[in-house]
C-alpha cells in the first residue's frame, strides 16, 4: 500500500509540473515537416536556442505533406518541405486565410545508394529507371555480379520520392515489387543490411561506412554538383512560413541561412546555399 501511495504522489507532482509551466509564455516556434530536413532543423534549432534562451523551438517530422498540412491548419509556424508546395496545398492555405511564403534554406541532391560490397559504381538515368520500373532485375545487366536486385524505394508521398519520380522515373511507375520504407533513415538501415539492395536517398544520409553512393551518368553527388545542378537530382530544401515572418521566426530563419547556421547544415551532410 505504501508503494501505491508513492505512485499517487508521483502523479500529483507531475500534474503540478504540467500545469505550472504553462503560464510562462516564451515564444514557441514549431517546425513541422520533411524527414529529410529534420536533422539540420534540429541542430540549428538547438544552436539558436543556445544564443536565444528565451525562444523554444520544437521540431516534428512526418513528411513534407504533414508540414504543409500543419501550416494550412495554422498549428505550426514553419513548414519544412523537401519539395515545393503544390498548387492545391497553396489554394487550401489561401482558403484558410494563410499566405505561405517560401524560404530556400539548403540545397540537396538525391543519390542512388547500394551496399558497400557492391562493385557497381555508376548507373545511367536509363538504367536507374529500368531498375525501378522492374525491367532490369539482375545486377549482371548493369555490370555487377549475377544476383537479383532488391529495389528499395520511398513512400509515394515523400518529397524525396517526388524528386526521384520527376528526374529519374519521368512518369514511369515504380514496380510494385519494390520494398517501400517510411523514412530516409530507414532506407539507410535497409540498404546497409542487404548486399543486393539499391535505394535512393538524400546526400545528407549517405554514410560511407554503411552504404555506398553511386554516380549518375558519371556525375558524383557532391556539394558542387548539387549547387550547380550538374547532377540531375539536385533540389532545394524549403521552409514555408505564414506571411513574411517577423520576430523570433525571422531571427531563426536568418540564423539558418547565415554562415553560422549553414555550418550545421554542412555538418549534417547537406549542401550549403553558397
Amino acid at each position: 500500500m505504501k508503494m501505491l501511495s508513492m505512485v499517487v504522489l508521483c502523479f500529483a507532482v507531475l500534474t503540478a509540473s504540467l500545469f505550472a509551466g504553462a503560464a510562462f509564455g516564451a515564444e514557441e516556434i514549431s517546425i513541422n515537416g520533411s524527414t529529410t530536413i529534420l536533422p539540420f532543423a534540429q541542430s540549428t534549432a538547438e544552436a539558436f536556442m543556445k544564443i536565444n534562451p528565451s525562444t523554444r523551438i520544437s521540431v516534428s517530422g512526418g513528411g513534407s505533406g504533414n508540414g504543409a498540412k500543419a501550416l494550412i491548419d495554422g498549428v505550426t509556424s514553419i513548414a519544412a518541405m523537401s519539395r515545393e508546395m503544390k498548387s492545391e496545398e497553396a489554394d487550401a492555405a489561401k482558403a484558410n486565410g494563410r499566405n505561405p511564403v517560401k524560404h530556400i534554406v539548403a540545397v540537396d541532391c538525391i543519390v542512388p545508394v547500394v551496399h558497400p560490397s557492391n562493385p557497381v559504381k555508376d548507373l545511367t538515368t536509363g538504367q536507374l529507371r529500368d531498375i525501378y520500373s522492374g525491367k532490369i532485375t539482375n545486377w549482371k545487366e548493369v555490370g555487377g555480379p549475377d544476383k537479383k536486385i532488391a529495389v528499395i524505394g520511398r513512400d509515394t508521398s515523400s518529397g524525396t520520392y517526388e524528386v526521384w519520380n520527376e528526374k529519374i522515373m519521368k512518369g514511369e511507375q515504380v514496380t510494385p515489387r519494390a520494398l517501400i520504407v517510411a523514412s530516409s533513415g530507414a532506407l539507410v538501415q535497409a540498404v546497409a543490411g542487404n548486399t543486393l539492395a539499391i535505394g535512393y536517398d538524400s546526400l545528407g544520409y549517405v554514410n560511407e561506412k554503411l552504404i555506398k553512393a553511386l554516380s549518375i551518368e558519371g556525375v558524383q553527388g557532391t556539394p558542387d554538383t548539387a549547387r550547380s545542378g550538374k547532377i540531375v537530382t539536385s533540389r532545394n530544401l524549403f521552409m514555408y512560413t505564414n506571411g513574411n515572418p517577423g520576430g523570433d521566426i525571422k531571427k531563426y530563419l536568418d540564423f539558418l541561412v547565415s554562415d553560422d547556421g549553414q555550418r550545421y547544415v554542412a555538418r549534417e551532410g547537406f549542401v550549403t546555399l553558397k
Binding site: G61, G62, G63, S64, G65, N66, A68, K69, I72, D73, K86, E88, E89, A92, D155, T156, S157, S158, I180, A182
Partner: peptide, 14 residues
C-alpha cells in the same frame, strides 16, 4: 496507414 498518414495533405483523396 502509419507510413503514409504523415505525408498526405488533409482532405486529399489519399
Amino acid at each position: 496507414i502509419a507510413a503514409e498518414m504523415g505525408e498526405t495533405s488533409v482532405g486529399s483523396a489519399h
